[in-house]
Amino acid sequence: MTLRRAATILLLLMPGLGLILALIGAVVYIAVAQSFGLYSLMGESAFSLAFWSDTMGKKAFDKAVRYSIYVGVLSAIFSVILAYPLAIWLRKPFAGSVTIGAVLKAPLLVHGLVAAFLYINIISYNGLLNQVMQGLGIWDGPKRLQNDRNAIGVLILQTWKNMPFALLLLTGAVQAISDDVLDAARDLGAGSWARFRKVIAPLTVSGLQAAMVIIFIGALADFSFQTIAGPTNRQSLAQLMVNFKGRGDWHSAAVVGVSMMAIALIGSALLAVAARMIMRGRLK
């Protein structure tokens, strides 16, 4: 019986997880091997720990790790914080709710690169925002907002692009809660905040986890938003990796790549646990 059950589960996992492990597993293996000096694209291959020790000893690496985690975590949090109330609001259809849902999801349809150039355009030195603020007399002169030091531009773009995704997932999760559960809570005298804490939050936690994890991984590995709108005194991990690659230092690039994978996996596990604790911890 248990054997049969195990076989069933394995069989079910084959087309999805199995395919991933077989194909992407091989790619991961190459990346890891490259970080140890093997599979060289420049000629000689020899096993070496030097690329790891050299790269990890670099100031730039340390800063890139911290910066990428900062962008990854904040993008995930901002996206779900904005998406949550909207999802609850849109749980039951009302006049105009379909339109609003569509408007909110529209950024999914705009390519990230286009979004980035439009954003830069709006905030540029002589751009729309600066002209409006000066026109209203709020600012005396144009401000340099592009590539701001705190990566606000990157966070805005990430949230703009990812909030709809979180909304999509959370709407599904919130809609799956049946009315009788919420009504029962109401009958027991729970206010709307209590209903959120005790009913909605625990029941939507896995949707929340999925959204946060996927957004975190994407933002952690961001290259294009960072190089267009990000601070010029910081490098993301992907940027550092591309810099190494551009110098022909494939092995150090692989070290950064493998570190990025490790951070993504560990970070998403931690985020998932944190989300569960926050959302379920309140359920007494």
């Binding site: 091989a26 190459i30 599979y39």
Partner: peptide, 12 residues
């Protein structure tokens, strides 16, 4: 998996 890894090795 083994086949894939040898393939992967051949790649480089």
């Amino acid at each position: 998996i083994k086949h894939l890894l040898t393939t992967a090795a051949a790649v480089v």
